[in-house]
């Protein structure tokens, strides 16, 4: 991932800091199913297991992980572009 290219603005947001595995993934998956292919969503998630596993799980589903940004408060912002159906 290039550090230079600006990240796209998300068209949707989701907060899953109140969920634990595997509901973190389930909620992200449901939110992505409501989007069109190519749309971008910003997902707020907790440090630790969600930040480690969710990007990998969403890649496995065929989505593109554009970036993971530390919010500085123990949470991260995960930017994901929905893959082709």
């Amino acid at each position: 991932m290039s550090a230079k290219a600006p990240l796209p603005r998300p068209g949707a947001t989701l907060d899953i800091t109140d969920a634990v595995c595997p509901l973190t993934f389930v909620k992200a998956k449901v939110a992505l199913e409501d989007l069109e292919a190519g749309q971008v969503i910003s997902i707020r998630l907790n440090d630790g297991e969600p930040a480690q596993n969710l990007p990998r799980s969403l890649k496995d589903e065929g989505h593109a992980v554009l970036g993971l940004t530390d919010n500085g408060d123990g949470t991260f912002a995960l930017l994901v572009r929905k893959g082709p159906a």
Partner: peptide, 23 residues
């Protein structure tokens, strides 16, 4: 619509790519 309870109850189905929310 799937409630939060539904998402949790059926989470092991929804996680499966072959089933997902649609299934």
């Amino acid at each position: 619509g799937l409630s939060d309870g539904d998402l949790e109850r059926y989470s092991r189905h929804i996680i499966l790519r072959e089933i997902g929310v649609g299934g």
